[in-house]
Design a protein around this nucleic acid. Structure first.
Lengths: 154, 154
DNA sequence: CACATTTACATCGTGCACAATGTAACTAGA
DNA sequence: TCTAGTTACATTGTGCACGATGTAAATGTG
């Protein structure tokens, strides 16, 4: 065997290391917006959905980001405390909490737009290489999620 | 603009999502070994180094896994408590803590060997595709780290 | 040798992730 | 309408990550 257990042979470690390295780059850029990386992802979803005028529920964010309420509830409370979003319990169904952007939250988008650009500039990797990597990742994620649906109790 | 801020266009989100999906697969496999995923990575390094009879210091693990003592110290304490490793302060340099595998830690390798195999079997993605992804990730990581060394205060 | 600096970990605080559990609100069936 | 079941979110506890700081040991300098 050419060592299945060798760290360098484990795709998991490459994923883990690259993810942390990329997140680290984002961290310093996002510090200027006073956002953490997961908070930034939540804001991305909210900015995206703001166009379609559909109210966003906590479960919508969870479905998009693959996060549960255990992660989202405290995160959203912090975003609300910073005045970027509001959390309102629905009147038609009191189980549901509706998330909407405040004016400040909407405005933050202008600053956030610069983040991906700055990140790409600071990244000494060919853009087409990143694009290829992203497409590979998306394909793998899709495969894993379809598979997960096929065997719900596996 | 074709929306730089769209979630699906952000490589960071693909990385984040795939990393968590893969980690999740590992989690259930590693539960049988009573290991978390980062603990498993530490054990991989220790098994690797056990061959060369070099003593492993906390900073060696940190360099390999890109983790600092704030993460490693409590993690290593937990591994020690489970009897897989021993933590001994060096006699020649009392700042250094030397990590070594216990007999139980060495033996666990036999069980751990099955983990990557089981993971690959349970993953409905072509192996050569994973290999390509891994190589892409390694290349990106390398590029980012070389770059990081070039600009230490950037 | 005295003293500043560096090194190697340890500690602390914050914020995720996630499993497990709790709870109130809605829904469906008899 | 009573009740069993489901849904949507909240809470709790554990374990990372990581920045910031602390501390003792080693090293370097005059």
């Amino acid at each position: 065997m050419d060592d299945l257990l060798a760290l360098d042979n484990q795709i998991c470690f490459s994923l883990y290391a690259v993810n942390r390295a990329v997140t680290s780059r984002y961290r310093s850029l996002l510090a200027e917006l006073d956002l953490t990386y997961p908070q930034y992802l939540v804001m991305l979803v909210l900015w995206e959905r703001a166009r379609s005028d559909q109210p966003t529920r906590v479960s919508d964010l969870g479905a998009r980001l693959r996060l549960d309420s255990g992660t989202l509830t405290p995160l959203l409370k912090r975003l609300a405390q910073r005045g970027l979003i509001s959390r309102v319990r629905s009147l038609v169904d009191e189980r549901v909490v509706t998330i909407s952007l405040t004016e400040e939250g909407v405005d933050l988008r202008e600053l956030a737009i610069q983040v991906p650009q700055k990140l790409l500039c600071g990244l000494d990797v060919a853009p087409e290489r990143l694009l290829a990597l992203r497409n590979e990742l998306k394909a793998v994620l899709k495969a894993m999620e379809i598979q997960g649906e096929k065997v719900p109790n596996g």
